[in-house]
Design a protein around this nucleic acid. Structure first.
Lengths: 230, 230
DNA sequence: CTCATGTCGATACACTGTATTTAGACAATA
DNA sequence: TATTGTCTAAATACAGTGTATCGACATGAG
């Protein structure tokens, strides 16, 4: 027994913490989607056994919550926004960009209340941007309405994006793509308005679609903020 | 061997079809949520082996799609709506009611493009209600904006409902409920606007919150429909 | 009666989240 | 120094998942 053939000492396990676990999970999700995240794979990426994670998280759902909150850190504005409208617009676009970087976010958005520290900080920011512009109820309604739109619009955009990616075709060519089914349905004549829309509608890119709807809603919010409480 | 102790003849398998499969899956989901739906349990409810289902559906995702489309059948208006606004309002409320009956719908809403026959029929209806009121692009934007709101608002409502149910407490009492965490955060003073909102905000029931945001958006849509195409 | 066909069910596989048990490294005590 | 106790990492185990494969069997054709 010399220095050379001395067996490796039992490797001191690398220290672990929630941050590293969450980071590994996010990396996995970015690469292979949410369903590629398994506790075993997360642990493997950290050279640990699966059960080790339970010292830091208590369930897989909690891990998802932590992942969502971690992404909320990317949603904090770099500079203080000019006014409430810019604040909400900025928040919406940052959320959309984050969802394009982390498509799995679309699967989780709105799925559970976000109460992590970063989510709270984001909420604080948008709420503060509207503070004092109207009574509290109106302000809350404004924030919730806009954020409902953000959630729904992002989910639809990502859903369409995945569908297009899966079929390799753009939305207009759907009828031929997923076609056998959809085009047959449209050809039945039972859906004239839809058929016309698919046929005559010009392709709008997702970003302008998102922005247009958002601006409509911000217009509505502006109108309500201007009015004194009913 | 008499008639009495004659062994059961090999039971002719009950005939199966997609409708029965989807109905069984929906029943399971209504009772125990989406994660209670497994192919084995669906099959068991139909006195069939799990593999039998693959003669009618090709994957579990497809089963989910069929479930969603089945619920869309509940979204068809009973009577032709009076005008575009009533059409959209009705659609929104019917969707919300359906999600309250089938909470799992919130998990699937907006998750993938809905192209089933019932979803197409619903789309046809809402599109037809707006037909001719503006150029096609504006109409499409209106429908998509409203439906994004519907998706997001319903998801949030169901998410809150589940959270309240899990803690047994109402939203205002969150701070004490999920409290140790949230109330401590709010007590740090880092979130003054949030703290004030939680403290001073009066509880609004989910339905009026939903309706209020919806009406704001419908106001915005009305304004855009009135304008000639830019 | 024999043979082909096509459908159903059993079996199997690779994986999941998590509970429980076991082994082993360190700290404190005798 | 020897020994005990404690605490943590890992191994094992379990019940379940979606789905591929394959063998048996009931039915229809010749």
């Amino acid at each position: 027994m010399t220095v050379w053939d001395r067996p490796e000492p039992p490797t001191r396990p690398a220290p672990l913490d929630r941050e590293r676990i969450v980071a590994a999970a996010i990396a996995l999700a970015d690469e292979g989607g949410l369903e590629a995240v398994s506790l075993r794979k997360v642990a493997a990426r950290l050279d640990a056994g699966p059960m080790r994670l339970y010292g830091y998280i208590s369930t897989k759902e909690e891990l998802f919550d932590l992942m969502v909150d971690e992404v909320h850190a990317e949603l904090l504005p770099e500079e203080q926004p000019g006014g409430w409208r810019e604040a909400l617009r900025g928040h919406a676009h940052r959320t959309r960009q984050a969802a394009l970087r982390h498509e799995w976010l679309a699967d989780l958005l709105g799925g559970r209340p976000s109460l992590g520290p970063n989510a709270l900080a984001v909420g604080e920011g948008t709420l503060a941007a509207l503070d004092g512009l109207a009574d509290l109820d109106t302000v809350m309604r404004a924030v919730e309405t806009v954020s409902a739109y953000i959630t729904g619009a992002i989910r639809r955009e990502i859903a369409n994006l995945r569908a297009e990616r899966a079929t390799g075709l753009s939305k207009r060519d759907w009828q031929r793509a997923h076609g056998p089914h959809v085009s047959r349905m449209l050809a039945t004549g039972r859906f004239p308005a839809l058929a016309k829309a698919v046929h005559d509608g010009k392709e709008v890119d997702a970003e302008t679609s998102f922005t247009t709807g958002l601006d409509w809603i911000l217009d509505a919010v502006a109108a309500k903020l201007a009015q004194p409480p009913a």
